[in-house]
Amino acid sequence: MLGDGSTGLNIDIGTPERLIFLEAPIDLMSYYELNKNRLENVRLVSMDGLKDTTISRHLYELLDEIEGLTDINLDDAKKLLPILANTNFFDLDANRELITLAVDNDKAGLGFIEKLKSKNIKFDIDLPPLENNQKKMDWNDFLKQKKALDLSQEPNIGSGTFNRTSSSLDSQAVKEVPQPVEQVQPTFPTNAQLHFSITNPQKSIRKPSYYKAKRKELTKIN
């Protein structure tokens, strides 16, 4: 659902028993796409940035749903994290997995993690991996990178895979399209002449339907 600045976009999968926080709605959707086969009984939350007040509010709401907490108003709910950090709440094994931070793997995201750790707030961490000397990565970029890799490989009939990258195409033998076979024509001299003999027209067979050529017309044939 959508709400005020501390609510953020959030999606329930099953009956939530824990919370996963991401920086932006697009990261939330990307994270779900990447992990949908293993996510269960969890609430995905977009913080629309890096907001510990959003974590506080959703932790309050989750605890209220699970344990029936009703004696904390909304203003206090936004400050729940530091309140709980001053108790033994996060020392209990059951509470250490309530929160997962799946923020961007960059300077800001890592700084936010250290900030919460310094306040004695316990949580799990799930960051998009860095590859090839990358300095930052978010879940949407990681999803696009994974899809590009998947598209570069297709199953091949037989064994192995067929790589569609340009380097592999260069190494493949290019198949020529069969050309139509030309029909062989009989040899015929181009300078041949046709001769007609009209010296004895009486030998010709004539039928009433035939046109009777005149002599001056016949002389034009050759």
Rank of each mutant, 00 (worst) to 15 (best):
E131Q: 06
L98T: 12
Y211G: 03
D4G: 15
L92P: 02
N105R: 06
T165F: 07
E176H: 13
A148T: 09
F21G: 13
G8L: 08
L194E: 05
K135V: 15
M47W: 00
I125R: 01
L101M: 11
P155C: 10
F90Q: 04
G49N: 05
A173I: 13
T187Y: 04
A77W: 03
G160T: 02
R96C: 07
L127Q: 11
K78F: 03
I221H: 01
D48Q: 05
E67Q: 14
D126R: 09
E65F: 07
P180L: 05
T70I: 10
S166H: 05
S197Q: 02
K135Y: 15
P178K: 13
N200V: 15
S6E: 14
K212I: 03
R18N: 10
P186L: 07
D124K: 15
T54M: 08
K216D: 11
L39M: 03
E182Q: 04
E40Q: 11
N222K: 12
G3R: 09
D12L: 11
T187A: 03
R57N: 11
N73P: 02
L84Q: 01
G111Y: 07
D106R: 00
G5N: 08
V45E: 10
I125P: 01
L34F: 01
H58R: 01
N156I: 08
D150A: 13
E217Y: 06
I125T: 12
Q202I: 15
S46H: 01
F89D: 11
R206Q: 09
P189T: 03
E67V: 09
N73Q: 07
D48W: 04
G109Y: 12
E131M: 11
R38Q: 13
